[in-house]
């Protein structure tokens, strides 16, 4: 009962905020609603005792990815009228993508892997059970190769992104810290000995 109230309130919040992400006019609001959606998802995962996934969702998506999103959205002057103009034109393509996503979700959740959970519910474990350790063990033993391949792909993406920004010849000026640190007094100051002169006549 208690859990169901929490689940339904966060579930409603998740759906509403997800709806607001795509319907609200102000892009900054949209980004903030996405943050709220992530939070609600994380709360629902916490209800499933998946504390590692829940916290990592907040840490990675809310703490890092959405900050950069907001950063960009705030800096850009986005023309909303032009964004909305293509709505009807892109509707068929969007509907197709939505259909494919929904179908794949139904296939996964309705498939073999979830049979056990549907029949007997989630296995209850004591508070000493750490699903962080369990997850780590599975990732680095049974799924080691997929993990390494995913890591390599991400690394390639990082390097590619950096390479793209470095393509144009760099025209901004920047200090060379090594040269700055290596500077000695003799390089900058020249002491000149002069004989004192008389005051003007």
């Amino acid at each position: 009962m208690f859990e169901q109230i929490i689940f339904y309130s966060f579930g409603t919040m998740l759906l509403l905020s997800a709806l607001m992400v795509i319907s609200v006019r102000n892009p900054v609001y949209a980004a903030l609603f996405l943050v709220l959606a992530f939070f609600s998802t994380s709360a629902i995962w916490l209800l499933l005792r998946a504390e590692f996934l829940a916290i990592v969702l907040v840490l990675v998506y809310v703490g890092a990815v959405m900050v950069l999103f907001l950063f960009v959205v705030m800096m850009l002057d986005i023309n909303l009228a032009r964004l909305r103009a293509g709505f009807m034109r892109y509707l068929p393509a969007g509907a197709l993508v939505a259909l494919v996503l929904a179908a794949s979700m139904v296939l996964v959740v309705g498939g073999e892997g979830f049979n056990e959970i549907r029949e007997s519910g989630l296995a209850e474990r004591g508070p000493a059970y750490s699903n962080t350790a369990e997850l780590g063990e599975a990732l680095f033993t049974a799924y080691l190769y997929p993990l390494e391949i995913a890591g390599a792909i991400l690394l390639v993406a990082i390097i590619a992104a950096i390479a793209l920004t470095q393509r144009a010849k760099r025209e901004t000026k920047a200090q060379n810290p090594d040269a700055q640190v290596a500077v000695r007094r003799q390089d900058r100051v020249r002491l000149v000995k002069m004989s004192s002169e008389r005051d003007s006549e």
Partner: peptide, 15 residues
């Protein structure tokens, strides 16, 4: 169990 992660997640929200 994931206390340290929790702290890290929350301090990253301060921004």
């Amino acid at each position: 169990n994931a206390g340290l992660l929790y702290v890290l997640a929350l301090t990253s929200l301060a921004v």
